[in-house]
Write a protein that binds this DNA or RNA. Structure first.
Lengths: 202, 202
DNA sequence: ACTACTATCTATACATTGTTCAGATAAAAG
DNA sequence: CTTTTATCTGAACAATGTATAGATAGTAGT
């Protein structure tokens, strides 16, 4: 299996990946609305019809991009979490905070990505591939909360109330800010409010 | 003399409203992605170019639809709030809950509307018309929280932490559920978690 | 009532888009 | 070397957003 590196070959070599990567690039620049299959093909140097051997339609390509972005986000979060070591309450709180901060900053940095991920293109049905990516993010949150409890930063009785609440607050604040309905400078104070309400010690 | 049927007239009479109303109808049925200016015009019985006398482009029409939906939602919320009378703690809690419930049910019932409202088409810049609609919803929340405090259902010290937190949780849960990343049956328990964390008495 | 004016809408045209399908080309299999 | 399969092209189609020039109707001024 020769890897085709030259663009003017008849067979591209790894067109599926190229399509996703290029669609990602154009989405990043122009947003979902202005992503055109033909421009993706043109950018790669391939005919518009070629894409249809890998994706049934434009929506499927966009969904593929969206799902790959969930992986990217989870990777990024895990890298950032790994930077914070220690089993103290302080470290646990930093990790908990980092989990939300990475989510928020990812969205602020690439709003077009965030919009794609939570658009109708990436609508998740119950037992799809994507649910596992959600699980991955959720498991990270679960671990963070467990650490908060075990280090004494979070009371045991608040533990079960914290999971969905944390996820919801972080996503909600991010969504409202990205869509312009809330000022970015409010993000930190909302997280403060959440930690205060959950009784996470300062 | 031509028959006085509204659609056969050269001048429509109130084309701007008709455009918004029809675009609303088609969006409700097919979603943002599949809304076409030409179909809107055809449905009204007018040429495609006619729309350009009222909206600079398709995006502007969609934005107009989106902003009108914010008004609709606020109207609906205020109607539902008005149904719950009394100045007891019980009534205050019901109104607080109703504020979130209407938001959630509105989105579940018409997900295409919700997606439009928080899409890039309705991106709100700081001093726009739309900010006032946000204010209207936020003022309702403010009043509900004040009532919770004055009836003794919410502690004074939690008051200032409750505003953005409540808004964020309700929107976040709704957004995650509409986009398929969270099961609808979780909504109530998330609200329970929030009320528990804020110390709102059962 | 006649004219000039303005607001409103149509007709036509164009580039771009998603998508289909028959066929070309290259790689793999025999 | 032939056959088969995977991969991509080319041309075509209908639909879309949008620009421009012109048609039509209501309105104001005389």
């Amino acid at each position: 299996m020769p890897v085709a590196r030259v663009r003017d070959q008849y067979h591209h070599g790894d067109l599926e990946s190229a399509l996703i990567a290029t669609a990602r690039k154009l989405t990043k620049r122009n947003g979902i609305e202005h992503l055109s299959l033909r421009k993706v093909a043109q950018e790669i140097g391939v005919s518009p019809s070629a894409a249809y051997h890998y994706f049934p339609d434009r929506d499927a390509l966009m969904a593929a991009v969206g799902f790959s972005l969930f992986e990217e986000l989870a990777d990024y979060q895990e890298r950032e979490l790994a930077k914070i070591t220690g089993i103290t309450a302080k470290a646990a709180k930093e990790r908990y905070r980092a989990l939300g901060k990475t989510y928020f900053e990812w969205a602020i940095k690439e709003p077009h990505f965030f919009n794609l991920m939570f658009s109708e293109h990436c609508l998740v049905d119950s037992n799809s591939e994507q649910k596992r990516e959600d699980n991955r993010a959720f498991i990270n949150l679960t671990k963070c909360l467990d650490e908060l409890v075990s280090t004494g930063a979070l009371e045991e009785r608040m533990r079960r109330h914290s999971e969905l609440l944390s996820w919801t607050v972080v996503h909600g604040a991010t969504s409202l800010i990205v869509s312009g309905h809330l000022d970015p400078e409010n993000y930190e104070s909302i997280l403060d409010d959440l930690e205060f309400a959950l009784g996470i010690r300062k």
